[in-house]
Amino acid sequence: MTDLHLESGGDDDGPAVLFLHGSGASGAVWKPVLERLRERGTRYRWLVADLPGHGRSGHREDYSPEGYAGAVSTALAGVLGENASLNVVGHSLGGMVGMTIADGTYGVTVESLTVIAMKVSWTGEELARRAATADRPVRIFPGEEEARELFGRVSGLRGPAFTDEDRAGGITARDGGYALSGDPGIAKAGPATGPELAARMRKVTCPVELACGDHDPGIEPADLARVLGHPVTVLPGAGHNVHIERPGLIADLVERALGR
């Protein structure tokens, strides 16, 4: 059993694609990409997870890459059965989780791995801000609307592509009001260092594509390529949340991974 929220749809007889979101978000961020693929008539089965401590999934003690990967793999087995075969698309934190699942030790055969906008180096200031987030008191709002609005800002679920229902997946009733459902404790686990990420990528045996937006303020394509050992596809006109800003470009990567 698992308390991880996992949704699926599309063509049950097509190749499976697992989408993993970034830190502080939820699986709803993939909605624009799924819509582009639907419009194109792409034949595949999609699976979208809310990672542990995020969205509609439960909180855990272990937010290590292995903790995330184990929870996701257990949920996948419940949907796809043992020895599942699938393609993985991960954004930021989701990319690291995808790398971990793709090392062959979780009972999942990963046919391809697409890693989008994964940060490989951190400044001291960035690490301090991250640590402060873990200790910050949880904000309680009297109404749902304010909590939904905050989650929209944190996750990127803003604009006409997303609804109040999408944003409601990231809030919960608490102490007579409403708060973000995400676990602040996810920030207590320090981000993986460059050497750690490089070691994880060396264990991946499937085809890999790295990508990032050309306006992503926290990622240098050359650094991403150097640390992870693969060329980087630079996506034009996009910042960190490429899947929201330019979903058609991510749909292109998915179809390329599927050989379409």
Rank of each mutant, 00 (worst) to 15 (best):
A84D: 13
T114A: 14
L20R: 08
V33G: 05
R38Y: 03
G10T: 06
S155F: 00
A102V: 03
S23Q: 13
M118N: 15
L93Q: 10
R136W: 13
R260L: 11
T163W: 06
G55L: 00
A49D: 12
P247V: 08
D13Y: 05
K188E: 15
E144A: 14
D3M: 03
A132V: 02
V227H: 07
V88N: 01
P236W: 00
K203E: 09
K188W: 05
T2L: 00
A132D: 10
A71K: 00
W46P: 13
Y44V: 00
A102W: 04
R158M: 04
T193N: 06
L47T: 04
D183K: 06
R153V: 15
G10P: 03
R153K: 10
D223P: 01
D175K: 14
D3K: 12
M1R: 04
A222D: 15
F19P: 00
P195M: 12
V234Y: 10
A198H: 01
L51K: 02
A49H: 12
R129T: 05
D11T: 11
E245G: 08
P184T: 13
E125R: 12
A128E: 11
A117F: 02
A147W: 08
G213D: 03
A161N: 11
H215M: 12
L6C: 07
F141P: 04
L228V: 11
L80G: 03
G194H: 04
L93P: 10
H240D: 05
G95W: 00
L18F: 09
R174Y: 13
V115F: 05
D12K: 07
E220V: 13
V88L: 09
V48Q: 09
L34S: 09
L197Q: 15
A189R: 13
A199H: 11
V138P: 11
R256P: 02
L127M: 07
Y44L: 15
G22S: 02
G169H: 13
D214P: 02
D223I: 01
K119P: 14
A117D: 15
Y68L: 07
V120N: 05
C212D: 07
H91C: 04
H240V: 03
D135K: 04
P52W: 02
E220A: 11
P32D: 13
G218A: 11
I116L: 15
E144Y: 05
H240N: 04
T42D: 07
S57R: 05
G169W: 11
L51C: 01
P142N: 12
T105M: 08
G81W: 08
V227Q: 04
E66T: 14
I140M: 08
L4D: 00
G229D: 07
P195A: 12
A225D: 12
G22M: 03
L18I: 10
R202L: 09
V33P: 13
A238V: 05
V79W: 11
M1H: 06
M118A: 14
R38A: 14
D216L: 10
T114E: 09
T133P: 00
L37K: 02
Y106C: 02
H230G: 06
L80S: 06
E196T: 08
G107N: 10
I171Y: 02
S112H: 15
R256A: 12
S64Y: 11
K188Y: 07
G107P: 13
V89G: 01
G182P: 00
L157K: 01
P191D: 10
F19C: 03
